[in-house]
Amino acid sequence: MMTKITAETAKENKPYYTALLELLLQLADDDFILAYRGSEWLGLAPHIEEDVAFSSISQDTMGHAAIYYQLLEELGAGNSDALAHERKAEHRKNAVILEEANGTGTYLEEPRYDWAFAVVRNYFYALHKKIKLESLKQSSYEPLSNAAVKINMELYYHLMHWETWFTQLTLSEGEARTRMSAGIQKVWKDFEGVLTLGSLGDEMAKHGLIEGEELLKQRFYARIQPVLEAVRHPMPIPCGMQSGNGRIGEHTKDLDEALLTLTEVYRSSPSAVW
């Protein structure tokens, strides 16, 4: 049993601290941007019950991002609101596939969003998040392992929700199947960006913050492969990272546009309390 590390002791150990900050930023930024993309579906989901469900999931996910930013604040990495709102795109660690726009148009003008893409992206993400959280529950950084236990309980319902949509739509005939197939291809060619822990991955594992990247990937593939076979849509392993590596600050114009929109209210009055 490893000794549990607190914020105070983490700050005294430079390599540990650096790896921890990197991991927390990845976790926070991933949840943050996907929750934002989810919130853009409000009022546009296929039916009213889905509107309620998806917005509730997005609210939970934004809550998860908030707790990671809070953990960063406790470690002296900056104010949590500022971390969420003031960092430029090139300092964001989120995977590129999570920032990609929901479809063509904008929320206010001609939003032609792609539901198949939303289902695939959210399902693959929830599945990977489950595997990561199971590992984080054993993290040497105690505040993180506590948060993981809590977040994991909420994720249970998210995963169930997206798995249902994914399986039913992909097993449908006609347009649903065609669009789901396109969604799977699209997410798969960039999902490596979600699975990677970046250049400090080995450091994170060494310090017991999370298990090694390769091990987590194996678990992800072992979990997703039977699902893809069950819907008769196997995919070649590994997946790709064609649109850039978000962990090192590579991003697309979609992130710039998202940041411009989501920080608009914050920028109008940074000191306001909500």
Partner: peptide, 13 residues
Amino acid sequence: MENIFGPAACRSI
């Protein structure tokens, strides 16, 4: 169960 997700994070419909 109409919807496991409800009007608040803690409730179902």
